[in-house]
């Protein structure tokens, strides 16, 4: 029976699952659109992984990351729950051991992570604006009626650059519409968008940061060759896009799980059968104090298994769910 680790990254736009063997080879990877239903997406993901792997596989460790990491952890019984910045850093170090800069652009978040001598040394994450993230590109691709997969290729065909404001998603969109109405080429506009996104990223997250080579570009948006080219032009060095760029968070979660299980010697994994369980969430506003916390109750097969969202612990302590592990 083959032993392997499971890494789960529940993000705002995609839910990714990676299966890794003990030699750190990737056996399976899945990229599923979350579409606002993380529970459904994860169930579907587990079902697919289960079918693809067949019978002779034993999961000996599970890690979760991404904005839905807590939820995923309660669903599958994770050994380690880790923030996505660390997970991305670990995965990048695994691919390129001397990596110094990570550009990560996902659905809702974009981050820059600087590494020195194999540790995360500095990072920044977009704060108040979603301009320059995957969702924004998705929306523009949809508006132009171009599949997102072809978006980057089209940008490469552009001969002249059309400048598009990159400061804010709303400004960028109206600027783009105005340029379209002037009759500019579609390729040129798409190229302008790619450049606007890269410019916005470097001005916002990259400001004051010492971007040193090797630079890795990962996250869903890394598949976009137009943006990669824009970054290469602006930074002035080659940018590496790792082979599994869109599931790096999940790879990081696998590696973290491997470390954790080595320490504890056992896994908390509930098994793939949970894909057949029914999950149900209810939420209510607690009226015990002025905080009015939105408390979430999580049920598996009609049984309450976890609660969270309360500040005081009145509800969550009843069940004492696994505490998120730190540092």
């Amino acid at each position: 029976m083959k032993k392997c680790y499971l890494g789960i990254d529940v993000g705002s736009v995609s839910t990714n699952v990676v299966v890794m063997d003990t030699e750190e080879n990737i056996l399976e990877k899945l990229y599923i659109r979350t579409q606002g239903k993380p529970i459904q997406a994860l169930k579907q993901g587990l079902q697919m992984v289960k079918e693809r792997l067949g019978q002779d596989v034993e999961v000996i460790g599970v890690g979760t990351t991404g904005s839905g990491r807590q939820l995923a952890s309660v669903m599958v019984g994770a050994d380690v729950v880790k923030n996505e910045i660390t997970a991305h850093g670990i995965a990048a170090l695994h691919c390129v051991p001397d990596v110094k800069t990570i550009i990560e652009i996902g659905g809702q978040d974009s981050k820059i992570i600087l590494l020195r001598d194999g540790i995360i040394y500095d990072f920044a994450m977009n704060t108040v604006c979603a301009a320059g993230t995957g969702s924004f590109l998705d929306r523009q691709a949809e508006r132009l009626d171009i599949p997102i997969e072809e978006f980057g290729e089209l940008a490469l065909k552009s001969k002249t650059t059309v400048r598009i404001a990159g400061r804010c998603a709303v400004f960028a969109e109206s600027d783009m519409i105005h340029k379209q109405q002037l009759g500019h080429n579609q390729e040129d506009i798409i190229n302008g968008l790619c450049q606007a996104l890269a410019r916005n990223y470097l001005n916002n997250l990259g400001k004051g940061k010492d971007i040193k080579s090797p630079v890795i570009f990962q996250g869903g948006v890394a598949a976009n060759v137009g943006i990669r080219k824009a970054f290469e032009e602006m930074i002035g060095c080659e940018i590496v896009v790792p082979p599994h760029a869109n599931v790096m968070g999940a790879i990081g979660a696998c590696l973290l799980a491997k470390d954790e299980v080595k320490r504890t010697g056992q896994t908390n994994f509930f098994g793939f059968d949970i894909a057949d369980s029914s999950f149900y969430v209810n939420s209510f506003e607690c009226e015990s104090c002025a905080n009015m916390c939105e408390v979430v109750g999580f049920h598996r097969d009609a049984q309450l298994v976890a609660r969270w969202g309360d500040k005081c612990g009145r509800w969550s302590n009843i069940l004492t769910p696994q505490k998120e592990q730190l540092a």
Binding site: S67, I85, D117, Y121, F123, M125, A327
Partner: peptide
């Protein structure tokens, strides 16, 4: 709070690693 939680956790982890270093 998820976004803030993520940033705080990553930041504290970074501080630990830097201190160990």
């Amino acid at each position: 709070e998820t976004g803030y939680q993520t940033r705080l956790e990553a930041f504290i982890e970074l501080l630990w690693r830097r201190r160990e270093k």
